[in-house]
Design a protein around this nucleic acid. Sequence first.
DNA 1: GATGAATGAGCGTTCATTCAT
DNA 2: CATGAATGAACGCTCATTCAT
Lengths: 202, 202, 202, 202
Amino acid sequence: MTRTVTAGTTDGGARPVPQRLLAAATRLFADQGYDRTSVQEIVEAAGVTKGALYHYFGSKDDLLHEVYGRVLRLQQERLDAFACADAPVERRLRDAAADVVVTTIENLDDTKIFFRSMHHLGPEKHKQVRAERRRYHERFRALVEEGQRVGVFSAATPADLVVDYHFGSVHHLANWYRPDGALTAAQVADHLADLLLRALRP
Amino acid sequence: MTRTVTAGTTDGGARPVPQRLLAAATRLFADQGYDRTSVQEIVEAAGVTKGALYHYFGSKDDLLHEVYGRVLRLQQERLDAFACADAPVERRLRDAAADVVVTTIENLDDTKIFFRSMHHLGPEKHKQVRAERRRYHERFRALVEEGQRVGVFSAATPADLVVDYHFGSVHHLANWYRPDGALTAAQVADHLADLLLRALRP
Amino acid sequence: MTRTVTAGTTDGGARPVPQRLLAAATRLFADQGYDRTSVQEIVEAAGVTKGALYHYFGSKDDLLHEVYGRVLRLQQERLDAFACADAPVERRLRDAAADVVVTTIENLDDTKIFFRSMHHLGPEKHKQVRAERRRYHERFRALVEEGQRVGVFSAATPADLVVDYHFGSVHHLANWYRPDGALTAAQVADHLADLLLRALRP
Amino acid sequence: MTRTVTAGTTDGGARPVPQRLLAAATRLFADQGYDRTSVQEIVEAAGVTKGALYHYFGSKDDLLHEVYGRVLRLQQERLDAFACADAPVERRLRDAAADVVVTTIENLDDTKIFFRSMHHLGPEKHKQVRAERRRYHERFRALVEEGQRVGVFSAATPADLVVDYHFGSVHHLANWYRPDGALTAAQVADHLADLLLRALRP
DNA sequence: GATGAATGAGCGTTCATTCAT
DNA sequence: CATGAATGAACGCTCATTCAT
């Protein structure tokens, strides 16, 4: 029951309330988990009251759903761009595989939320997110299958499993990657894409 | 599925109370998440009362900690066995990589809990689990490094990253693997170990 | 169902805003009760915004008070007309008793609100309504007493009690009368007036 | 989800907690209405905490349901006793009609709640209460019909309507009867039963 | 060893009302 | 005239934990 947001606040150039709420919720959900984050904490972090939150969002669950919508839209768009590029399939897969790593690292909070809190969505929203996730998976799988068909990738492993293998490592980034660590996002992306392509060598 | 009776069973033939509680908690935590599972649900599922739970466990948190202890112990033991085996390093790594997949699938509930509920542990228990997890990671990494040193594995990718790559896919199993799906645990393990080894080909 | 336009209608042909609000509130209060009806629901049903409601009415409470005012005025007027008619007292009482039944059934929503929501009015409005109600009661009682005095009605029962006996059954209509039931409003009115007159036979 | 209450408190001879809660709720519901009475008020009046209330009752709604259960049971039992008595039908109806007045006056709070708050029950409980109420109505109607059949009562009015006529006045008692008024409960009962019987004279 | 009544703090949510525009 | 964002207080309810028995 998300209400459409048309205008923002005017007080002193601050970001509009719904965006402030979404940002606060994203950070808190990622840090503490969905269940451990109270609505009170969110509104305090955003500097508004509960009433304001429920003016823009139908429920705490809705807030989570919005986060999912944002990250799903972003990733799908980027994947589409790479998959449709005019390049050999091994190049397109490599670029897509590396890009999802970079994008994930740049939005680590969203990713943490994505994989840890999916089951907190109500059944209907859960189903919707799973469907969008599925589309994403299949787009990626199509690339792998294309490469296997034309013979540049080994067909020893089912394409589905290959996709889950790679996404597993992407998902796992939220568990170990630290921005102040030894590797930049681009370096990690390069290595992980490399591992995928090497694993697919015929 | 162990049936070892260690402490005072009162109602002849049933498993002792602490084990019944642990089993009930494991299933419920995996199905609904730690926060969504009430102590009341656990004791009802185990067929005891709250008093009994608090007799054996100091807190709900303790219950979770016990689950972690069990799975960590199990995985460490198995890895140690494979790592110390008398075989070429590529064989030892392959066996270890495949075994963690099988073990994970056989204990999917524990794995779900492991990755989704770590942040529910209190700080000191959290630290303890992370330390044990680290030891496990390093044991595995040592195998990769050994292979790289002796030249049977490519050294293009840092060993740490290789380990996280593989464990990412293992962790991800809880998100997609279904016992009634197309592939058996052994087949999945074979494929994933294969992908790892192929990615490491010099 | 009046279509009298008293104040600034803006959107050609629709009833003015205050009347739309009052009608919406009446229906909702009767269906769900005063407390279960939110101001938001009322304004949505009336097709206006909250600001508009608070422009015309001081509070939600005010809305309820208006409903009371309308029904009280209507019933008092009708009773006065029957009581002052030029006819024998038994005829006048009978007609008045039957008319209040018909009027009540024709405005069942108002009646539901009347008896269920009186205690939701603020103290001074409550007192005011009770006073008007009292006047109505006394007007009716006067008819009974008149008949008792002239001997056409039995004086075995105090007139006050007779009035409450009849009004009890009128009040109760909202609990059981259904427009699609076996009896028309007129038939019910006839029967109830009959019972009253028969009970008063000397 | 009412839990069965097996034992009470031991501190100082006070009534057990569930009974204290029920008594407090009854009084408050009658005085202020169901919606206007907060759970907080109830527990404060009963001298316990919310947790205690929810230990014994599944919901606020449950509390209301218990009140209904008590009054329905009581009235049905009394009606049954009078209806089955060994006496002419006019005597049995008169006694039953008078008794329900006395019982109602003695439990005016319950009656207020009964007629004003029925629609606050959830659909399932509502249906159940309506069914029990229906049984009561039919038992009473059977008495009227019996009298009409044997000719001691006029058959001019449908028996159903006669019953609603009388119950209307009983229901209405909560709106006007005051214990410190001019009439005792027995006197009011006598008069109202009288009116009913006189209305039914052939 | 085990019970279950009771606590107390906190939860997500609702809502009549206000007020700058 | 009318809007709708925002408030602030209250709501019904949950739950891990304690403790007298």
